[in-house]
Design a protein around this nucleic acid. Structure first.
Length: 510
RNA sequence: GGCUCGGUAGCUCAGCGGUAGAGCGGGGGACUCAUAAGCCCUAGGCCGUAGGUUCGAAUCCUACCCGAGUCACCA
């Protein structure tokens, strides 16, 4: 059952400052999906940066730079972040690239031609900072109601372009009812359904007073959110009849933070339909990351620096921790102590130590060469394991996927204590010893395959210590067959532990 | 205020109509291949509160309490 090409996206990151761990979180999740699907067939993973808008222009001005020059200095930080966490994307789109800007203009023209974009008049209070129109009733003392803004608003009356969003309300409602799992988790689905039932207004999609954005006919720029959403198809060369688009759209999974669900699950499908395109199959809104229970924010000074964290713990430990610790749709409380516990427990004691003890016994008793086994019964119990991990991944239940993999880790640790290779060796029961050692090595080979999407670096180290060339690859249904590891394979174990124990940070003030 | 989601063992959570579960922590034990790691045994929690439905509810319904989120152009 070869699957159709798989397409996964992250939001494009709004480059208003430096990346934090939350950005890495979304990207890692997308990377795990992409890496998994790449092992099974064809996959395309898109990420990028959202570079337009008044805030970016203002930040650039403050730095004395043209917005384009300003964003040029910031984008490498995001790319460095992704590299630091071994996030392997297929394309990185910047909304300032000509391929995107030109495609946005083309989309605008098409929508105008079809009548879904029309010229109207917008009157109302406008906050320049937030680039937002506010209803009079929302204002607080005549100021912007956004608590982080509170600036003076101004009365604006301008001819603007509108998108006929309200026209798609009934279709959206029907779509939601027919596809109860297209927005997840369920909480997000419910909230969006409630929004739809409350009714929709047409969307103002132009900003006449701004210059930093996709230029529109007659002046002004495209509303940044429309500009941003379109990246998911402009990167596939949609307007240029690209093969990428044919192959990958609609997206299988679009990952978003829960705060931008409305844009992705109401406006976005309506825009796609207006273009005659199908909506994505699944939009998944993951939770917020908090620091020891409190929202991460610059003002609280508790933003976790993703570079420092990776430096201290390593990319794979972070990747494992972020996906294992909390359900993907829930908020997630980060703390170094929790991470240390996972690192030393699950990774060091269970996995790392398993690799080391298994290969050490192989060296001690069989000169490091994988023996032939006359006995295949041990592996039978893992027949459905790969399929269970795959099922969990399809549901974006990363945690369940990892728990399932750890069933194998635990079973291997257990079988060592049960079969006691050291006793078999002393007793001279070579055949039974060979069977035990083979099973351990074969289990490690399975782990390399299963861990590849989650911890690519670790998976490769296990693979290579087994003496196998390159990296673990190939569809699980073919590779996860007990007994595929060739006897006679000369292993190449390392003395260095995969996950050295980490001690708690001692308070400097103690 | 409306709506949504949670409130289960010390901690993090699973279970979601049929005699309460996992991991971690804690306690005990046997071993030695290994990163003082691994393995085995153990923990007796009014399943937020009060009602209701049912032969039977953590699991369905109602009210309430507590926490979080969200409420139209705000990553």
């Amino acid at each position: 059952m070869s699957e159709r090409a798989f397409y996964v996206t992250t939001p494009i990151y709004y480059i208003s400052g430096n990346p934090h761990l939350g950005h890495a979180y979304t990207s890692i999740a997308a990377d795990v999906l992409a890496r998994y699907h790449r092992t099974q067939g064809d996959a395309f993973f898109l990420t990028g940066t959202d570079e337009h808008g008044g805030k970016v222009a203002a930040a650039a001005a403050a730095a004395g730079l043209h917005p384009a020059a300003w964003t040029d200095t910031l984008v490498p930080k995001w790319q460095a972040l992704l590299a630091r966490y071994d996030v392997q994307y297929d394309d990185f789109i910047r909304t300032t690239e000509p391929r995107h800007v030109e495609a946005c203009v083309e989309v605008f023209e098409r929508l105008k031609a079809s009548g879904d974009v029309y010229l109207g008049t917008y009157e109302g209070w406008y906050c320049t900072n937030d680039e937002t129109f506010w209803l009079e009733s929302k204002l607080l003392d005549g100021r912007c109601p956004n608590p982080e803004c509170r600036r003076q608003v101004q009365w604006l009356s301008e001819d603007d372009w509108f998108f006929a969003l309200s026209k798609y309300r009934d279709r959206l409602l029907a779509y939601y009812r027919d596809h109860p799992r297209w927005v997840r988790p369920e909480r997000a689905y419910n909230e969006m359904m409630a929004t739809l039932e409350g009714g929709l207004d047409d969307l103002c999609i132009s900003r006449l007073g701004l210059e930093w954005g996709v230029p529109l006919p007659g002046g002004g720029v495209m509303y940044v959110w429309l500009d941003a959403l379109l990246n998911y198809i402009t990167a596939l060369d949609y307007t240029r009849g690209g093969v990428r688009f044919e192959r990958y759209w609609p997206a299988n999974v679009q990952l978003i933070g829960k705060e931008i669900a409305r844009f992705h699950t109401i406006i976005w499908p309506a825009v796609l339909w207006a273009l005659g395109l199908p909506a994505p199959e699944l939009v998944f809104a993951h939770g917020w990351m908090t620091f020891e229970g409190e929202k991460m924010s610059k003002s609280l000074g508790n933003v976790v620096d993703p570079f420092a964290a990776a430096q201290r713990f390593g990319a794979d430990t972070l990747r494992y921790f972020l996906l294992r610790e909390a359900p993907f749709g829930s908020d997630f409380s980060f703390s170094e102590e929790k991470m240390r516990v996972r690192r030393n427990g699950d990774l060091g004691n269970d996995l790392g130590n398993l690799v080391k003890r298994s290969l050490a016994m192989l060296v001690r008793y069989r000169d490091g060469v994988v023996p032939a086994s006359s006995e295949q019964s041990f592996g039978a119990r893992f027949d459905g394991l790969g399929a269970r991990v795959a099922t969990a991944l399809d549901a974006l239940d990363f945690r369940a996927a990892l728990e399932t993999i750890w069933e194998l880790v635990a079973a291997l640790n257990r079988t060592i204590d049960e079969r006691k290779p050291w006793e078999l060796f002393k007793r001279g029961d070579g055949e039974t010893l060979d069977a035990a050692l083979y099973d351990l090595c074969e289990g490690l080979r399975w782990l390399a395959h299963l861990l590849t999407p989650f911890m690519p670096g670790t998976a490769t180290m296990i693979w290579q210590q087994l003496g196998l060339g390159g990296t673990a690859r190939g569809p699980w249904r073919d590779e996860l067959v007990w007994g595929r590891l060739a006897s006679g394979t000369r292993t190449n174990p390392s003395d260095a532990p995969l996950f050295p124990r980490m001690d708690a940070v001692v308070s400097a003030t103690a």
